[in-house]
């Protein structure tokens, strides 16, 4: 606590102060540090893909097809002789793109709809929440498949499908948070000082809901990647020859006996990334949720 007093300006983002994030203590939480480390590895390797990947991910070399891991191709090659490590590194870009788009869309739409429903209530609340109920009534994955079936396969359409089906869960959780914060004593105090709805939302509800939003985003990213991989595996998502982890998994299936690394490597990559997002979110929740602190 005494450390925090040193710098009153800390923790400010875009005009509102974050409810003090215990920055360095966060790293003492093993979930946050492990999850964060994996995420950092994927992020850095994806950003640096053109420079660090040992081969062109699209370059075919039929003479070097289905090589086992080791040698100059560190993780082996696929049936066209493409370097698996390079494809894995480039595939990280697609995984992160899916996560980012899905999170941003769910975040913007979810915050807006959740705020309107939770803060203003009434018939708008009823309308929004019934819409959410309808979307939630379908299993997520089925809904995404249906949307891709309508729009046709491809990276862009898959992104749309995943982004949209991420909205309802976000709306529901955020609305609950808004309802809680709306009843807070400091919100009543702000109203008694003459604050209008906009000030109450901007200064009191949004900043105090940031912990929940961070957690929702990280869990949302994990689901999005899982669904994207699933869709690609079914041939409904990313199309060849793009190096997508889910698509790589499908390709490798045919060579499961002769070249098990073709499925194992992208499978492990998906697992590691989803695992990282999940424990990162869990860890953040433990740190940021004041109800767990005392």
């Amino acid at each position: 606590m005494s450390l925090m007093r040193l710098d009153p300006a800390r923790g400010r983002i875009a005009g509102f102060a974050l409810p003090r994030l215990p920055r360095f203590r966060a790293l003492r939480n093993w979930r946050v540090s492990l999850g964060g480390a994996i995420l950092l590895v994927v992020l850095v390797s994806s950003l640096l893909a053109p420079w660090i990947s040992p081969f062109d991910p699209y370059a075919q070399d039929l003479k070097a097809a289905l090589l086992p891991p080791g040698g100059s191709h560190l993780l082996g090659t696929d049936e066209f002789g493409r370097d698996l490590l390079s494809r894995l590194i480039w595939g990280g870009r697609i995984a992160l793109l899916v996560a980012a788009v899905s999170v941003v869309v769910s975040l913007i739409a979810g915050l807006f709809l959740g705020l309107v429903a939770g803060y203003f209530g009434g018939w708008l609340d009823a309308l929004i929440m019934r819409g959410v109920d309808i979307l939630l009534a379908f299993p997520n994955f089925l809904l995404a498949i249906a949307m891709v079936a309508i729009l046709g396969p491809g990276l862009a359409n898959m992104l749309v499908a995943i982004a949209i089906f991420g909205i309802p869960g976000f709306v529901r959780l955020y609305r609950a948070e808004v309802l809680t914060l709306k009843g807070a004593d400091y919100v009543e105090a702000a109203r008694s000082m003459g604050a209008g709805p906009w000030q109450v939302i901007r200064r009191h509800i949004l900043p105090n809901s940031i912990p929940l939003v961070i957690v929702l985003c990280s869990l949302r990213a994990a689901t999005a990647i899982l669904v994207a991989s699933g869709l690609s595996f079914l041939g409904l998502g990313v199309e060849p020859p793009l190096p997508d982890w889910g698509a790589m998994l499908t390709n490798g299936r045919e060579y499961l006996r002769v070249a098990p690394h073709l499925t194992t490597v992208p499978g492990l990559a998906i697992m590691a990334l989803v695992f990282a997002f999940n424990i990162f979110g869990d860890g953040l929740r433990d740190i940021l949720d004041p109800r767990r602190k005392h």
Binding site: F16, E188, A189, R203
Partner: peptide, 11 residues
Amino acid sequence: NPMTSLNPAYT
């Protein structure tokens, strides 16, 4: 209740 009537996020 002065413990909860001030917004914890601001000075």
